[in-house]
Every structure is written in structure tokens, then in C-alpha cells.
Write a protein that binds this DNA or RNA. Structure first.
Lengths: 191, 191, 191, 191
DNA sequence: TAATAAACGAGACGGTACGTCTAGTCTTCCG
DNA sequence: CGGAAGACTAGACGTACCGTCTCGTTTATTA
């Protein structure tokens, strides 16, 4: 169904706006990104931006959303460690790319902007967590993970180290980080 | 012996400046915090701020540093799980307090300000990590932790979930989070 | 026919800006006059001032221009002494009024600001000198003034004393100064 | 009598201060001249400047005073036109030199600073006018100038054109301007 | 010769204004 | 009649100087 990218349509220059916002976010950072700068680069009136987005953070988020790979179905091979490792490896390699920089900056901006934080969680984190939670629940059902731990606790143990690396260390990941994290964490949740 | 307040001197109104910066950071967030606002509240010329600090982020960081408890020696009771739990519980209760909000906002600002990120890591993260690393190393020596894992990997597994909770979830911690995290993580590193 | 207030348009609050600038120039002098003060009084953003004027001196000059009487045609009665006296008397009475103070201050500022000096000469001095020069030339043609003297030399002799009084003496004029100056000067240029 | 340059002595670096002030006045103009700039160039504390002078204008005036030739006695040859022409020629050649620029700028500053205007008149204008007035009075006594005109009126007629040229025209003088002015003016005052 | 006081350099301080930049709103005018 | 263009009020930015105010340090008497 050839529907719009999002309800409420959008400006004619939507893609060029998001491209410009994304590029400037990577080049200069989110707080050097300005509505004026985007408007000037795209050749669009500022009003057009404000008509469709409430803040530069939201524009950057939209730009990021379109660039984040969205394999909606979590892999299932029967081996939860293998499945989680596969998915986390994909996440890690994205975090090591420009997309990771953009995500890091938007997550930072979200610390000062509740509306942005909401959308960030709802649109980016939520679906991915849901997808993973489903896989964890299934692993619990299959007896691969101890039922004494809530799936969200397991998720936090799994992905917490990634955010620590991204936001606190601000260093790239080691090649086998995903694998080592998953095996270490899941070992501690074996029944 | 009439020594200075701190090595390297500083402005006459240092404490009042840090107080104001800290309070405004909590009230309005770091990007609503302004040099002009601080100067006006304290009754100080802007030049005095710029003479001693390069940016509002650095002021906020100094304010935070003075407010973060700094128990320099890591507890040692023989039981590494107990010791780490004790220390992490203290950290968690700080993260749940206003100090945690300030830290969260400064860490966010550090994503766009490399100099701030440097000082953040060097002065806040570094010493605490070093202290914890010492304790981990000792536990490895005593055979409580498998030597196959680097201490920094263990540290990342232990504290990653805290940053995830703070920055991504933005929700308070559960009462026994520290204990559950530590026991879960350390179990996976048992020799 | 809905023409603009003046060619080249201008800010919406032009008149209120010039009023404020003029009043503050008289009250406090040109170097106590500030862009911020004008903006604050008028309730206008500073950018609006800088968008339309390059400096406070230019604003003050515009304000003065609008307040200087501009009888464009020099009187002609056949008697050059009478005509010049009539016109100079008008000038003198203006110089004795607040307009004279403003002019004195702007002329002073023009000593340090070449662009201001240019406009001052081009818009204020130039047209008036041209008008007077025409009258002098006619008087030369009619044999009332010796052709051996250039009109600009005559003009300098006529109006020099006024500036001396205004800028060096800084004292008001005597009631018949214009008449005495004109008669004295023109006597020396009789053929 | 080996007295000081002026009562109340002065700062140790007086000459270097005046040199710096004079040079900077010529280079950048009086309102780009700053106390800080002088202090920095001379290597003197700001307090030393404020201890001895109330404003930068006063420093510049002192510097100018020391550089203005001060032939205290007006020439007397019996021919008033020749004497005045001789003296005015000297003035004109000074006004065409850097000293003239400095004087022009200080006179401009005096328009906004009554104290400076006072000293300017008292120390620079006053003595020279007194000296000239004496010569005029003598010429009146000798029947070379009509007694119907006050000496100060004559003086204003003589020197007014110079200030007009300096401040309004801001152009150099013609070589024989002094001679032409004097002859023209004195002709009009012949008995 | 020692003390004492003044002038000094240095520069921090509370301020004001600068000229620029961006935010977010409002208006004009063109396609 | 929707959007580009951009003027508008507002206010923070970081800098430059203002004039005042300590700080030690010379420098020059005066005791």
C-alpha cells in the first residue's frame, strides 16, 4: 500500500531536509545543528520546518529513523545465544558507523528534551526491545534461561554494556564484543 | 598553614558560582543553563566566569565533582560480591538522587563536547574505575573471578546496566538492583 | 498611490527608533547613546537596528536629517547680502536649538568615523552648500561680488565663523551675528 | 628655575605614556584609544593612569599640549596683516600635520566631555586667542582696524574658516590659504 | 641603616555594551 | 493559496574596556 512515510504527510522537501539534518548532525554535532542552517542549506523557509517538526532534535530523530536498519523479526534458530549474538553483532556494527554517532548524539539530546526522549524510546528502543523480549521469553519457555529473572532484567544486562561503551567510553567496540557479552550474560542466567 | 582553597586558586566567588550552576542545572537542564544566568544570580561579571572556566559544561562538571561522594578506598571484606554490591548500592542511590540527574545531563553534554568528555572521564569515571579494577584484580588473584576475563570487561558488564537504566530508560532503580546485578554478573565470571 | 515611506524601505519602527535615538542623543550625548539603549526603549531587537544601520552614528544622523529644515531654494531678492543674511539667520537659530546640539555631536562623531563624515557632508552640508553656491555665483554674475574669489572661498568665510562658535566656543550666537558676519564678509568681496 | 613640567609632578613613565597615547591617537583615533591599550603598551598598571589622569581624553590632550609649538609672543612688525598672516601660516602648517589630526580628534572628543572642553579652551585656545587679541587691539589703536568691531569678532572671522576646513571639509589647506583669508578679512575691517 | 610610606606592575573584579547568532513567530509576495 | 523569503522580538553568546580594588614589589624618604 503506497502510503505516506508517516501520517500527516510532510513537506515536499522532506527527504532533502532529513538528508541535510543528518549530514549536519554528523559534521557538527546536534547542538551546532540549527533550524536556520537546515533551512538555508535546503533552500526552504524556516516556517516550513516549524510546521512539521517541533524541534531540531525531532528532525534529527526522523533522519535517524529512516537510516536505522529495521529487521523487524528477531532470528530464531533454537539457540538463544546464537540468535542474540547475531542480532547484537548487527547492532554493534551499526553503533560503530556514523549511524552510531547520530544515535549517540540524539540520545544525548533526549536527556534534556522529554518529548524527544519519548519518541526515541517509543520508536527506536521500544520495538527492538519488544522483539528481543519475545525471543527471551521463548528461551525461558524452552528452559534455556532461568525463569527467575524477568526478561527486561536480562535485556538490561545484555545491552547495558553497549551503551556504556558508546556513551561513557566513547570508543569503538572490539570485534567479538557482542559474542563475549552474550555468552557471559546468558551463562549467568542458565537455569 | 594558610593554604588556598584549592591548588591553582580560582575565582573569589567559586562556591557561590558552583552552587548556582548546580541548582540551575537541576532546575532547567544544562542547555537552559546560561553563563549570563549564572553571572546574574551570583552577582558576578561574565568575564569572571570565562576567566576560570571555558564553558558552562565545565562549571557544571566542577559543581558535580564537589557534590559526588568520593570514598577513595574500595571496600575489602574478602567477599568480592559483597564488596562490589556495597559500593554499587552507594552509586545507585546517588544516581537516584539529584546528583544523578546532574550527572546524566553532564554526560549528555559530554557527547557534544570532547573537552568535557575528557575531564568527565578523567576526573569522575577514571578514579572510580581504577579503584574498582583494583578490587577485581585482587578477586582474580584470590580465585574468586576467572582470570580469563579482563577486569575492564567485568567492569563494563557490572556498570553498563546502570547507564542503560539512567540514560535510556530514564527511570529510577529498583531497591535491590545493585545486588541482583552484581550477583548475576559475578556468577558468570566464576572460575 | 501606496508608496513606501522612503525608497529602500526600512524597519517597521523606523520613526520610533529615530525619535528615541534623537532624544537620547540630546539627553546623554552620542557616546552614551547605545544600540542596546535604543532597542530597549523602542522595544525592538538589536538585530533590527543592525539590519538597517551600520552604527549608532548613522541612526543619529538619520534622526537629525529628518529634523533639519530643508528649504531647498535659496532666497533671491536681488540683494545678495539680504538673501544670505536671511538664510544664515535661519541656520543660526537652528544651531541655537537642540538641533544644533545634535548636529554638533554628530559632527564630532564624524571626526572618528569616515563613513559618517561622508554621509554628513553629502546629505547635510553638500545640498546646502550647493544651494548657497548658486546664489553666490549669481551675485558674481550680477557684479555684486568680485569674480576674483572662488564661491567656495566665500562660503568658507561666511560659514566658518559659525562652526568656530559652535564647536570651539560652544556658546550661543549673538542676536545679530548672522547679519554682522554677512555684511562684514561680503564687504571684503565687493568688486 | 628648574621646576617640574607641571605642578603636582606626575608618574614616572609620563613621557612614555604620552608618547604611546599620542601615537595611538593618530593610528586609531581617539575612541579606539583605550586606557588598557596605553597601559599595555607602556607596561604600566592601569591604576597609574587613573592616578594621574581622569580620562583618556585628558591624556591625549596632555600629549598634544607638549607637541604644539608655543611661540608665546605674537609677532609685531607694524603691519597687522603681515603679522597675522605669518602666525596663521604657522598654525595652518601645523593643522596640516599629524598634530592637526590629533587636535581635530581631541576637539571632537571635547564636544562630549565638558571637562576636556574646558581644558582645551583654557590651555590651547585661550593663550593663543589672548596673544592674537593683543595684536588686534594694538592694530585698532594704530588705526589699522576699525574700532567698531570687537577683537573677538575679528578673531572669529579670521580663524573660523580654519576650523571649517579642518572639521567640516576635512581637507588640507591650500598653500596660500592663510594669506588670502587674512587679507580678505582684514580688508573688511579697515577703518 | 632600618622603617615606612608612596607609587608602582599586575591583573581580578562587577559591570556595560558590543556585534553576531539562533530561536520561534509573523508578514509579504510570488508561482 | 501554500510556501520561500526573510523581517521581527528576544535574548545568549564570547569579547573588549570601563573604573575600582587588592595584591606584593620597588623606590625614596624619614627616623
Amino acid at each position: 500500500m503506497g502510503q505516506d512515510k508517516r501520517s500527516g504527510a510532510g513537506p515536499r522537501s522532506r527527504d532533502r531536509i532529513l538528508d541535510a539534518a543528518y549530514r549536519q548532525t554528523l559534521e557538527k554535532g546536534l547542538d551546532k545543528l540549527t533550524m536556520e542552517g537546515i533551512a538555508a542549506e535546503v533552500g526552504v523557509g524556516k516556517q516550513t520546518l516549524y510546521r512539521w517538526w517541533p524541534s531540531k532534535g525531532m528532525i534529527a530523530l526522523d533522519a535517524l529513523v529512516e537510516r536505522l536498519s529495521s529487521s523487524q523479526t528477531f532470528p530464531y534458530s533454537g539457540d538463544v545465544a546464537a540468535d542474540v549474538t547475531r542480532q547484537m553483532s548487527a547492532v554493534v556494527s551499526q553503533l560503530d558507523s556514523p549511524v552510531g554517532t547520530a544515535l549517540r548524539r540524539i540520545l544525548a539530546a533526549a536527556q534534556e528534551d522529554p518529548a524527544l526522549a519519548d519518541r526515541f524510546r517509543r520508536e527506536l528502543i521500544g520495538p527492538r526491545v519488544d522483539s528481543l523480549r519475545g525471543r527471551i521469553v521463548r528461551a525461558v519457555d524452552e528452559g534455556q534461561i532461568d525463569a527467575a529473572y524477568s526478561p527486561d532484567f536480562v535485556i538490561r544486562q545484555l545491552y547495558g554494556p553497549l551503551y556504556y561503551q558508546l556513551l561513557v567510553r566513547q570508543e569503538p567496540f572490539a570485534p567479538d564484543d557482542a559474542e563475549r557479552i552474550v555468552s557471559s550474560v546468558l551463562r549467568s542466567f542458565r537455569p
